[in-house]
Design a binder for these strands. Structure first.
Lengths: 232, 232
DNA sequence: GCCGATTCTCAGCCAGTTCTCAGGTGACTC
DNA sequence: GAGTCACCTGAGAACTGGCTGAGAATCGGC
């Protein structure tokens, strides 16, 4: 968590997406640079030598694969996360899943992107061996097993519930607005309203049983996961 | 698992294949170096003295057999795994299966390659005496005999089922995505869709009988083999 | 070359999941 | 203490992902 800042290059021609992703990653503690075309991306890789590249496949000039190929040809094995449209991903699978690379189909949630980046950085740093766990009070989230425990009882969560809890745990002791949660946990093109966060918090609390009040409602703001001694 | 790192040299002129194999082996804990031509390979063997060579037969300059012959002539008996195209392999089969060597016809699965490498390294290290086994809960996989037992009952598996179970057991307690499984257990040029993983999990569960629920479905993610006491 | 085993595709079914909505409840304001 | 507002939660509709049986295609052993 306190390693030297990781530099990420984000490449996509949709400006709003670049903005969103960039600010989320900056917030997560990464140093971010962005470009909107293939050629600019290549130039940026050469000049700033990033630790990871988030690369859209559909770019106006050179496509993402070609950009990646050229990066590799220059002898850089920086990991790349490709962003692709939902359809057609299957055909591409074998082509670009290699060298520590990964891909994400649009639309994705920022939580998902953050998870992939973390996983890749862990792999690159070579600490793939030990389990990656997150604990707050009696709550424990095992990210490798995708399991959650409360006082050693396993709690079965749906994917969305899991992402929500993960986000809350990452920000334990900090109040998060419903909008913030919506932006992070849901796919970025989600059209509905923030009320759905309430519904999912309700689901979570029900499943947490006695641990339900670990999720504190911050009236007029949003929610917060209580740290055991945050009361002080 | 904690022996001094094994150095592997991967030689193939197809860049994407080299990338894929290299990263898979690195992930499996090997130290990997790669070359794309016969001469470069010979030079690399001399300079880095690898513990094992994965060698494509069809190279642009010198062919794989010749490379192997020259390595031997220099007095090195480093084991070699040849990669060959599917056709024509038959004639060669008897020819080069000797001296700790092995071969694999393209396309192969990464799981298969990993199994061969493991087997050879075991042979070379001389611990052929004791059986090489993998156990998770009441499941036991005997890699030498290629047999699987659940509570001492032998379970008869097809080759693909075996590779799948082996991969799951290697990663017990960790959720694996269907894509990850597909990439590792199936041949790398498999064109079909990830749904086939579901089918094979279904086969496995049927054969496992009472042990069926050791394979947990992680909805939205993939599958995981349950460890008996994952809480530790 | 035949036959059984194996691999793979496909489609229907079902359970779990996502999301919307609306009535209820509790908290804060004046 | 009445009104208002934010939040909670149950019900249910629509959808999705995963399971499995059936069958076609292929492989491999004899």
């Amino acid at each position: 968590m306190t390693e030297p800042t990781t530099q990420i290059l984000v490449v996509d021609d949709e400006e709003s997406l670049v903005d969103m992703v960039s600010s989320a990653l900056r917030f997560a503690g990464y140093e971010v640079r962005s470009e909107q075309s293939g050629f600019d991306a290549l130039r940026a890789v050469k000049s700033s030598d990033p630790d990871l590249v988030v690369l859209d496949v559909n770019l106006p000039d050179v496509d993402g694969f070609e950009v990646c190929r050229r990066i590799r040809r220059d002898g850089r094995d920086v990991p790349v996360i490709f962003l692709t449209a939902r359809d057609g991903a299957d055909d591409l699978r074998t082509g670009f899943r290699r060298g520590g690379d990964d891909y994400l189909t649009k639309p994705f949630s920022l939580e998902e992107l953050a998870l992939r980046i973390e996983a890749i950085m862990r792999r690159v740093r070579g600490d793939g061996g030990d389990h990656h766990r997150l604990a707050v009070g009696d709550l424990m989230l095992d990210d490798d097993a995708h399991q959650v425990f409360y006082e050693d009882d396993e709690i079965d969560l749906s994917p969305t519930e899991y992402r929500l809890l993960h986000y809350l745990m990452l920000n334990a002791g900090r109040a998060l607005s419903k909008m913030q949660i919506l932006d992070y946990v849901w796919e970025y093109d989600f059209g509905g309203d923030a009320g759905i966060v309430e519904t999912y918090v309700s689901y979570l609390r029900k499943k947490l049983g006695r641990g339900a009040d670990m999720i504190k409602t911050v009236r007029g703001v949003g929610y917060m996961l209580r740290r055991p001694e945050a009361a002080a």
